[in-house]
Design a protein around this nucleic acid. Structure first.
Lengths: 343, 343
DNA sequence: TGTTAGCACTCGAGTGACTTGAGTGCTAAT
DNA sequence: ATTAGCACTCAAGTCACTCGAGTGCTAACA
């Protein structure tokens, strides 16, 4: 176990390193006055801390920097139970100020978050698994084309253009929309395609002339291919961090960030509450020397989405954790209000 | 005026430098065999070309690199009248393969473009100035909220949520939608707000109870705040270019690219046809050492949007110009088809 | 008169020796 | 248990040196 003094020294070193990004030497700590011991004493303790794996040296005669284990310990034990970060209030007031759609709130939150931290923020939109079709509309643009509009009970709107089968005339179309609305309203949008195939097909055959020939045009309306939406902000923000002084590193990071799937996977396995993943704890190669912090926001205990920050392992964990904690609460609230509308 | 031989040498140097990014020496040119003169002769010509401003040295005893003036001359006189790039066919077939919405086509084009060139591609969506409202729909989500959906004659769909004024009941709402559709269909969407204020207001007062109190909630439906849409692809692509080996440069570039307004301004003053802007010819500070190539795509001679590529001044102008030329034609075609639908 | 060979010169880039200073580890004294 | 002292280490900077690609110029050549 660590002694009181070792804890203190570890904390001071990490705090200092997080602030300056320079290795911390024993003399500097001693001079600072937080710890009333001489440099030599501190040196001994540092040697012990290094042996235990909490600290590292960049070379044999350099000052110490925290190891990943050190950060881990710091995050798990040395951060005071998060007092809400003052900036959360700012976010809260911004969210409540206007009548924003959920997407706007998310977008703004991502921007604020990256601005406040100088890291890259990522927000995974709410999982739409549970949202249901509220209404389907089809607007004809020309004899050959039309746009189908799906409105969900959460106010989410999707649209796709499609070719109108030549065999369908306007009155058929009207009948069709009626049937579809009748049968599909209330169906979870992820199941639309399935229900359309199995339950609606027969009905269509009865009422719509030549339905078989129309079928292939219509089916794509219900293919739901936007499982989640990503909001990323401050990608270039992170370039201000001194650890991004290497072009190769920047390349791998940005290449990873352009791959939406990879980013989604990064966040997907996040759990309830806040989760900190430091350096090599990350599974994804490209961020094995970065830290990822995720927080979930939710509705009625169903997990809905994830907020995350990516930054160097030398991250301001204290600030970031309390910010994310607060923001996820605010977003949960905002989302809750949205759903309330529906009752 | 430049002699035949000087032209040839200039061309060889620029071609070589574009390929390798290393200063080109006289001996290397001579050895290559394209020009049947000795290194010394070529040296003399190079000195002349430098005096005229087409070439530069990185230091007093280095090989030559093209100056911006050199690139200018190269682009204006040394590039053969663009034969259509073979890859344009690929793009064409992709576009025609499925029934894509215009936005999808644009998105794909941007991606293909950046992939084929390793530069950053930017496409400015079609100016929607001329598009007209086809239909307005309002879907009530709850007693207090609704979502308004605007469908344009081009199949573009916009939506915004708004608070339903408490004094409006469902039948009022229905009446309102009817009035709005009656009066606003066919109105250019940029003028919706204006017409709504001036011509529809009176009508509303007559038919809708307590219209004055509803007014403030409704007006925001018609505020049109998406003048143009940007599609960017391959931002990290450009990091592969050797000129981006400097973190400071990367920073300025990415910071610029995150500012949507600045990017839009970059492309806005583009003209009919292809325009090449080299290095300092650019007005925007952040790309004064990069080149920008823009091409416009259009509908019925009204300019609609812009396709652009940003890369180092050492750009593969020949390839890029023929690619953009071809792609802008394809997009013009695609857009034309879209509008055809409407007649 | 245009072309070429030859040669001195320049400068970036790489290399090795040296210095400096921050920081360590260890030992002996307090 | 703590601290002062001292020898040691290493990154980073500086300087002198070398190497080689490339130039500019001059004189010889066709």
């Amino acid at each position: 176990m660590l002694t009181e003094r070792q804890l203190l020294i570890l904390q001071v070193i990490i705090d200092e390193f997080i602030e300056t990004a320079h290795p911390v030497g024993s003399r500097a700590i001693s001079k600072k006055g937080t710890i009333p011991y001489s440099a030599a004493t501190i040196r001994n303790e540092m040697a012990d801390l290094e042996e235990m794996g909490f600290l590292e040296k960049t070379h044999s005669s350099s000052g110490r920097i925290p190891s990943e284990l050190g950060y881990r310990y710091y995050v798990d034990h040395l951060i005071a139970p998060n007092p809400l970060h003052k900036d959360v209030k700012i976010i809260k007031s911004i969210i409540e100020e206007g009548f924003y759609e959920f997407e706007q709130i998310v977008q703004m939150s991502a921007e604020i978050l990256s601005e406040l931290t100088n890291y890259t923020s990522i927000i995974l939109g709410p999982e739409l698994m549970e949202t249901k079709l509220k209404q389907l509309q089809i607007v004809t643009l020309s004899p050959q084309t039309a746009v189908a509009i799906l409105i969900t009970d959460t106010g989410h709107v999707e649209h796709r253009s499609f070719k109108v089968p030549t065999v369908i005339n306007p009155s058929d179309m009207e009948k069709m929309v009626n049937i579809l609305n009748d049968r599909l309203t209330g169906v979870p949008i992820v199941r639309l395609n399935e229900i359309f195939h199995h339950e609606v097909a027969q009905l269509m055959k009865m009422y719509i002339r030549d339905y078989d020939r129309s079928y292939e045009y219509l089916q794509e309306i219900f293919v739901y291919d936007h499982p989640v939406k990503l909001y990323i902000s401050g990608k270039s923000n992170i370039l201000m961090q001194p650890e991004f002084n290497d072009v190769g590193k920047i390349r791998t990071f940005f290449t990873m960030m352009e791959n939406e799937n990879e980013v989604v996977n990064l966040l997907r396995n996040s759990q309830h509450g806040i989760k900190v993943t430091i350096g090599n704890e990350n599974e994804v190669e490209a961020i094995k020397d970065l830290s990822l912090i995720t927080a979930s926001y939710q509705l009625n205990n169903d997990q809905m989405g994830t907020i995350a920050l990516i930054g160097p392992t030398r991250m301001e964990y204290r600030k970031v954790i309390s910010l994310l904690d607060g923001l996820s609460m605010e977003m949960t609230n905002a989302l809750y209000k949205w759903y309330q509308l529906d009752e």
